[in-house]
Design a binder for these strands. Structure first.
Length: 191
DNA sequence: GGTGCGATTGCA
DNA sequence: GCAATCGCACCA
């Protein structure tokens, strides 16, 4: 079986988020729907780690919504934003340490679909809150080894849409594949 | 039980 | 530039 199709295992997720984030770039997001499997190479992610990050859902401490962020790495955290769009996160790190990585963009899983932007991505991959807390090593949603982006192709920028977060808004916690055609956000944020 | 708002997007 | 649309955190 070819290396690119190898499924990522729990050990991949149970590491510090800053280690996992760049390692997610170029990995294949896989979503089983009906008898088909949607696949798309991840191009852009953002780290939300700890309770001191004002932009993180974990900032107020543990609540019902953010509970999956406090779990051990290896599950999905999916929430509804603006009552309109779903956002997919990969939960990382160890039990009790809230950390999640927002998957902001991937290559289109089917021709004509658009998975650039967190809301568009969940729509393209048919992901909603039914997958909140779902295992990432199960049969509904998972990651495969894909073709990891080499370190030389990875860039870091500030995160998007969190201007209210003070100093945290300036931290470079967004990771992208440089020059990738499917990045989201303002052009100035794409390197 | 009431209120305010968001890790976004698409359209005017 | 702004409306859409709703779960939920927070306060009373």
């Amino acid at each position: 079986m070819n290396e690119a199709r190898r499924r990522l295992t729990l050990g991949f997720y149970r590491r510090p988020s800053l280690e996992v984030a760049p390692d997610l770039l170029g990995r294949e997001l896989c979503r089983s729907v009906g008898r088909e499997v949607l696949r798309g190479r991840i191009a852009e992610v953002e780290v939300y780690d700890g309770t001191r990050d004002r932009a993180s859902h974990a900032f107020p401490g543990r609540t019902r919504r953010n509970a999956p962020m406090f779990a051990r790495g290896g599950i999905a955290y999916v929430y509804l934003i603006y009552g309109v769009h779903h956002c997919l996160n990969v939960v990382t790190a160890e039990e009790g340490h809230p950390a999640a990585i927002l998957i902001r963009a991937a290559e289109a899983p089917v021709d004509g679909a658009n998975a650039a932007g967190p809301g568009r991505l969940t729509r393209a991959f048919s992901i909603d809150r039914e997958l909140d807390g779902e295992s990432l090593v199960g049969s509904r949603i998972w990651l495969e080894a894909g073709s990891p982006a080499p370190a030389s192709r990875i860039r870091r920028t500030a995160r998007i849409g969190i201007d209210y977060a003070g100093a945290w808004a300036r931290r470079r916690l967004r990771f992208v594949i440089a020059g990738h055609p499917d990045l989201s956000g303002p052009r100035s944020m794409n390197v």
